[in-house]
Simulated scan of single mutants.
Amino acid sequence: MNFNLERGTSLGVVGESGCGKSMMALAIMGLLPDNMTASGEVQFGGNLLCLPEKELCQIRGNRISMVFQEPMSTLNPLLPIGFQVAESLRLHKSFSRHQAQQHASKVLDRVGLQSHKYSRSLYPHQLSGGQRQRVVIAIAMACGPELIIADEPTTALDVTIQAQILDLIAELVFEENMSLILITHNLGIVAENTDHMLVMYAGNIVESGPTKNVFEKLVHPYTRGLFSS
């Protein structure tokens, strides 16, 4: 597969389950399972696929962040939410504990978890699904990354909360001039939230272009099948 993503733009990736959407994201992040390898190039100030793990760790969570679909598998159930947001700041930005806690609280405020309502000492199980996903977004946004990869970020949420989370991601990405890769099987989400899109089938890109153009033309038979399903 081959695609480009400019700074400040958003890319939707759609396709049926098992087509390789999430594996593509994990390859970019350098998080593929041990029994899988990626070849080619992922250019991000250098080829990410060639970087040693130590250098990848300096990029992952700092310049590139990922929002996973299930917050309870992302968050540590034994640590308070404030600590989990502050942790990446201490790791990547060399903040003191106090600085990291202060900045983490501001980030949590920004994602809608204001300190007067939500103590930074709360644990993930004490929050709703939508609130937990806001914490995951706060962790992803804390270090001011250049690229956010959101892999089905609203799958486990009800429709009303889905819209709130997507609006939040779009707002933060726009304000910080970040790039966004939004992975989903929901064509409506792609239509409303992305500038460009890719349609994937069996590990390959079968159609791509500006989102509006893809929706209007439906060139590939698989794309037409997705739209009619």
Rank of each mutant, 00 (worst) to 15 (best):
F174M: 11
L166N: 05
H103V: 15
D195Y: 07
F95G: 01
G112P: 04
D158I: 09
E175T: 11
H125Y: 05
S119Y: 08
D109T: 00
T160W: 02
L78H: 15
I149Y: 00
L198S: 15
L172S: 08
E146Y: 11
S121R: 08
G129L: 03
G188F: 07
Q84A: 09
S88M: 07
D158C: 08
H125C: 01
A150V: 10
P153E: 03
M200A: 05
K106T: 08
P153M: 07
V199Y: 14
E146Q: 12
C143G: 07
I81Y: 03
V199N: 13
R134A: 07
L108V: 01
G129A: 00
I165N: 01
L157T: 00
I183Y: 07
E146D: 11
F95L: 04
S119D: 11
C143L: 10
I81P: 01
L91W: 07
Y123F: 15
M178P: 09
S94P: 06
I137V: 07
L182Y: 09
R110T: 10
I149E: 00
S128L: 01
V190Y: 13
H98D: 08
P153D: 03
H185V: 02
S179G: 14
L198K: 15
G82T: 06
R120D: 09
G112V: 03
S88C: 06
H92A: 02
T155D: 00
Q126L: 01
N193S: 12
V173P: 08
Q126H: 07
T155L: 02
L168W: 03
L113H: 10
P124T: 11
I169C: 00
R110F: 11
I148C: 10
Q102M: 13
Q102S: 13
R132Q: 03
R120N: 09
V173F: 00
H116T: 14
V107S: 04
S94G: 09
H185Q: 12
L147E: 04
R110G: 15
A100Q: 06
L198M: 15
Q102G: 09
C143Q: 03
Q162C: 09
L113C: 12
R90G: 12
E175M: 14
E152M: 04
V135H: 06
L180T: 14
R110Y: 15
H103G: 14
P153L: 05
S94C: 08
L157C: 05
S96N: 12
A156Q: 08
Q126E: 13
R134Q: 13
M197S: 02
T160S: 13
I161K: 04
L122I: 02
T155E: 00
L172F: 08
R120H: 11
G130V: 00
L113T: 03
H196K: 11
S179D: 08
F95N: 04
L166I: 05
G82N: 05
H116N: 15
Q164C: 04
N177T: 10
R90A: 10
L79P: 06
